[in-house]
Design a protein around this nucleic acid. Structure first.
Lengths: 138, 138
DNA sequence: TATCTAAATGAGAATTATTCTCTTTTAGGA
DNA sequence: TCCTAAAAGAGAATAATTCTCATTTAGATA
């Protein structure tokens, strides 16, 4: 993801393009494994030591509100952030803090068909996310 | 769920039966919609005004460790608790803080078969929980 | 291009959920 | 009934996040 692409993402959403927002989005895209706010802060302070912690939280909030980033909650109640906006699921390792994205369009279609038939009365489904818990083989 | 049942649950897990633990488990079973620690504290303080906040957190931790209660992950950063231990999914309302349990054995079987065929290499699945996001019809 | 203003940032205090420490109490086995 | 490890109480400590308000800035407009 180039700087130009990141800039466009912000502009498309009507968000002002600031160095802080660029740095934070860049950090989320570069840091793998769904970084925490702290991971992001550590990362961007290398290049932008003057960025305020509060700004990072405020920007993260704005990015989530504008659907440029997703929040992911872990078993250990720490909030993490995910730059992959395409519908996808998560594999949670129960032995480490790894969360792996899992994209499976066949599964998505299966689920969509299932719930179309099922038609939960009184509930309109917008999105389905699987939390698949288990362990990665060593 | 009777007091006797709750008591048995604690005993089965080798946990000492204390009034605090009884009250907290009772609160989780009585409070609907996946209470937060704060909800639980407010609820039990009516009957047990002297219970310490720290004790509630400690007991919740012990209950989760002993699989008498589950933690529920939400998009927001407050932890919520669930006394239903049977495998089930959640319907998250995006317009309110309602989280409804969703039990569907047909779906569970479908998913199990799907992943048996799929056989994610390098990952051993223990549990699958669906976060179904949407809105309840008004 | 210069100006203007609402929006964004910085700095650090404030808040809030949760954990920790240490003393006292208690459940339940001997 | 006694004993002891486990649990609870009290409140301080911690850590993540939010808030406040003064200053700066992006980008729309003239």
């Amino acid at each position: 993801m180039s700087s130009e692409d990141i800039k466009n993402k912000l502009t498309e959403r009507g968000l002002k393009v600031t160095p802080q927002r660029m740095a934070i989005l860049e950090a989320i895209y570069n840091l793998k494994n769904h970084p925490t706010a702290e991971n992001i802060i550590d990362y961007i302070k290398k290049m932008h030591p003057n960025i305020a912690t509060g700004t990072v939280y405020k920007v993260l909030g704005a990015l989530v509100d504008n659907r440029l980033v997703k929040k992911v909650k872990t078993e250990n109640d720490i909030m993490r952030y995910d730059g992959v906006m395409k519908s996808h699921h998560h594999l949670y390792c129960m032995e480490s803090d790894v969360i792996k994205d899992y994209v499976d369009e066949e599964l998505d279609e299966l689920l969509q068909n299932y719930f179309e038939k099922k038609n939960l009365p009184g509930f309109k489904i917008e999105d389905i996310v699987l939390q698949v818990k288990g362990t990665f083989n060593k």
